[in-house]
Amino acid sequence: MAYDKFNILTSTAVPLPIENVDTDQIIPARFLKATERTGFGDNLFRDWRYNQDNTPKKDFVLNDATFSGKILVGGKNFGSGSSREHAAWAVYDYGFRCVVSSFFADIFRNNCLNIGVLPVQVSADFLQKIFDAVEENPKTELEINLPEQRIILLSTGESESFEINKYKKNNMLNGFDDIDFLLNIKEDIETFAANTPL
């Protein structure tokens, strides 16, 4: 599914300094019954965000108007647990284009890259600096520079580089997905299929 191209993103950030945020928290299983890919943002972090009577939980960061932006900053081991891509959709659909953490669970990272959310892995130190800066001043902006693979804390100018493989980077820059690529090598695939032993 096509998504917006990603180049340089400058935005304030929403801090979620919790470790091991699993995909069941990002989007609880009971919201996986949809047959289309819309409306997931409303249920992002549903059980942390709302009481059982659907009133917002005041102390949860998404309900706190002080913090906003297109960047979600999470604790270590973000996105662990179930492979549900709905978690990445919920993050995207809510309006985040980038998630920053000091460590990502594998499947979640892949899912994000497939749908246009950029996972940016930083050092534990840098993550702490971001948390501190945003807590101190919620207007603090981050720059995510994909062409240069650099994340910059604009309030202090401190920055770090991040990893992304060349192929995924190219896709993100152009808003392409993997299927476009695969359909182009269809003949190779069919030749291969004809020779598999199983």
Binding site: L32, K33, A34, T35, E36, R37, S83, R84, E85, N165, K166, Y167, K168, L182, I185, D188, I189, F192, A193, T196, L198
Partner: peptide, 26 residues
């Protein structure tokens, strides 16, 4: 491996694909 992408992922052929109702409709 059907194809290698330089500095990118491998294109891996899949022999068996199982689908269920929750993650397939989209």
């Amino acid at each position: 491996v059907v194809h290698k992408i330089e500095d990118g992922p491998d294109v891996l052929f899949i022999d068996r694909h199982m689908v269920h109702e929750v993650t397939s409709p989209v």
